[in-house]
């Protein structure tokens, strides 16, 4: 990794508070730029026998949008977050139990989904659930000219030709989740993947700083 290149990757400023909610087992509030998301984790808990899995924990994700009305888009986000977090959690440590992850959108100025995934990961870290690795989500837009923009703002995202979302694990920076909207060439995809992978280091470093800040006071 070349340091000069890393400087080029400006992510939105990240701010986080852990243990934001007093009653849940783990919670985090995260702001990425002006987008703010609150996540809460409860579990491992006893759940009804029909949804129990004898091999691993059942992860349930609830996404609440600001309007409060459930929509198909919310279900889609829930699915993405559930699949992502299921790979991160060591579910086999908690068989026949359920873990509930509730995510509340507070402000949306673009990059809501990446913020939600990162916030969910921080809440899981705070809850002390055993995890295989942590995950970092980074998004990327292809603008009208064909240039790549990391972490696009609302306006950039709306006018973009394509949007690409990537989630990486912290072990080998492998791709955990990836999905796209719009049209783009294969080379663009490859380059976006490389750039986002480099940028994910910032997010992982941020997680480490947050945990460091909190480990001093315990």
């Amino acid at each position: 990794m070349v340091p000069e290149r890393l400087q080029d990757f400006k992510l939105k400023p990240l701010k986080c508070e852990l243990n934001f909610l007093s009653k849940s087992d783990g919670s985090a509030i995260l702001s990425q730029g002006d987008t703010v998301v609150l996540a809460s984790v409860n579990g491992p808990l006893d759940i009804k026998t029909t949804s129990q899995n004898i091999e691993k924990a059942t992860l349930e994700v609830l996404f609440c949008s600001k309007e409060g009305k459930p929509s198909v888009a919310d279900r889609f986000k829930e699915n993405v977050i559930r699949n992502t977090c299921e790979t991160a959690i060591l579910g086999c440590l908690y068989p026949r139990t359920g873990i509930t992850l509730t995510i509340q959108e507070l402000e949306n100025y673009g990059g809501l989904l990446t913020c939600a995934v990162n916030c969910a990961c921080l809440a899981l870290i705070n809850s002390g659930v055993g995890m295989r690795h942590v995950v970092a989500a980074v998004s990327c837009a292809v603008n009208e000219v064909g240039d790549l923009v990391l972490e696009p703002t609302q306006q950039e995202a709306e006018s973009a030709r394509a949007l690409l979302y990537f989630v990486f694990d912290s072990r080998d920076k492998n791709l955990v989740t990836g999905f796209t909207e719009g049209t783009f060439s294969e080379d663009t995809y490859e380059e976006a993947l490389v750039r986002c992978r480099l940028a994910s280091d910032f997010v992982f470093q941020f997680y480490r700083d947050v945990v460091k800040k909190y480990s001093n006071v315990i």
Binding site: D25, G26, S127, M131, R132, V134
Partner: peptide
């Protein structure tokens, strides 16, 4: 591998654990 976030601690001779924050 580490499965929880916290501080890695060691007690002699060979006991290792993670000091982490959790409620449950």
């Amino acid at each position: 591998y580490i499965t929880k976030a916290g501080v890695l601690k060691k007690k002699n001779p060979h006991t290792y654990w993670i000091d982490s924050y959790q409620k449950r």
